[in-house]
Amino acid sequence: MPENPATVPLPDDGPLHGDPGLQPERTALAWGRTVLTLIAASAICLRWIPEQGPFVLAMFGLTVAAGTAIYLTQRRRYRRSAEGIREGRLAPGIAAILWTAGACFALGAIGVWLVLS
């Protein structure tokens, strides 16, 4: 009787699943767009320094930190997603979601404070 392909362990250097268009690839692309957006936002923050003062550096630092954190954890998230699909169960990355939401909230709060001050 042939083995179930979902339970066969894959080598570390091979693909984690057989369909390159599955959810992990789309999610990786979405996180890549998020990093690119944060880089653009951090550059825009630097343009505001003459008008808003050095407090804008807090926004710059937050956008750079968020983009760096997403970039550095992307490989682990991709592997976890691909393994979850292969195993038939996938849990959402609650920490990444909460951290990103918190960074967005903080950026929005700093932006509102700068506009109103």
Rank of each mutant, 00 (worst) to 15 (best):
W31R: 07
F105I: 10
E25Y: 10
P20S: 14
L29V: 07
S42C: 13
W31T: 07
A69I: 11
G108K: 14
I44L: 12
G14A: 14
A30Q: 00
T34R: 14
V115D: 05
A103G: 05
A101R: 04
A65V: 05
I49C: 08
G61A: 08
F105M: 06
E3W: 06
L38P: 07
P2D: 00
G18N: 02
R26F: 02
A58K: 06
A58N: 03
Q52T: 10
T68C: 08
G88W: 03
P50I: 13
A109K: 01
L114T: 12
T37C: 13
P92N: 14
V115F: 10
W99L: 05
I94F: 13
A43E: 14
T68L: 05
I44T: 08
W31D: 11
A28D: 07
V8A: 03
L10F: 10
I70A: 04
G14N: 14
L107R: 01
E83F: 04
I39H: 11
W48L: 01
A66N: 08
L38W: 00
D12W: 03
E51P: 02
Q23L: 06
G67V: 08
L114M: 13
R75V: 14
A30S: 03
F105E: 10
Q52A: 12
I94E: 09
P5I: 02
V112G: 09
A66P: 09
E3Y: 11
L116D: 01
G67Q: 09
G67H: 11
R80N: 11
A30D: 01
D12C: 02
Y71S: 12
